[in-house]
Amino acid sequence: MPWRGLPALAPFLWLAAFFLFPFVLVAKLSMSDIALAIPPYAPRLDLSRGLNGLVAFVHGLDFDAYRHMFEDGVYAASYLSSLKFAAIGTGSLLLVGYPMAYGMARCPPGVRQALLMMVVLPFWTSFLIRIYAWIAILKPEGLLNAVLGWLGLPPVALMDNDPAVIIGLVYAYLPFMVLPLYSVLERQDESLLEAAADLGCTRIETFWRVTFPLSLPGLAAGALLCFIPMVGEFVIPDLLGGSSTLMLGKTIWTEFFANRDWPAASAVAIILLATLIAPILIYQRQQSKLMDTP
């Protein structure tokens, strides 16, 4: 049947137009120069001049935006700091999420369903609002310091700085870490644990030698699902981080909205994309495998 792919046509065309093609435009713009015009960049493709227009356009493209990025240390710092935040965030999420997922998997089935529902629910409520909720808690005269003061403890500075960003990242992405971990832990065959016990493993040994290695696919899925979007995170560093907190998502936003430097914003976006393409492809392969073999 030659028409088997027919249902795919409409979504295919939609995604090609609104997802794939725009990336070509981002790549093109990253090689353009900033200009005092609307839209604020040059050269512009003038097809009314035919082939000459195209030639002039191609000659106008250069790598100035990229060169500028390599020369200005702020971009490199922002790049490294994004990766650092995402790595620390993912590590912290594992420490918080694993015990939760493990505990959930060991609950009776009825309780499990309810707990699962409770983990998913915050994911549905607005990201922005959930981050906003932390401002009232973390700010210097906020609720956390009020409680600490009431307990007679010294106040902590956890607002507008890097630790606040980590708290925000862990909070916002926790469901994405718990769900894949839970789904592998829940399916684990209990007879394996019994076998390990029969062979003389203590409970801790059984965990490290059986349960943990078997949960690695879920761990990898959760880590990718959190790490990739975290690298480009904007809302969390913007609201909870300080002026010294550098992250690529924030850099793109500032270049675009504050500096109106569209080519620079595009160049940062291309570099971010180039960094994330490998993890995205790994994640994709994992997803298709998971979906194709139910």
Binding site: V26, L276, I280
Partner: peptide, 18 residues
């Protein structure tokens, strides 16, 4: 699958340019 994990700033910027 890609848009599920793609940072939103990239999606936003690319759509605007479109």
């Amino acid at each position: 699958y890609a848009p599920l994990v793609m940072p939103e700033v990239i999606l936003g910027l690319s759509l605007l340019l479109l």
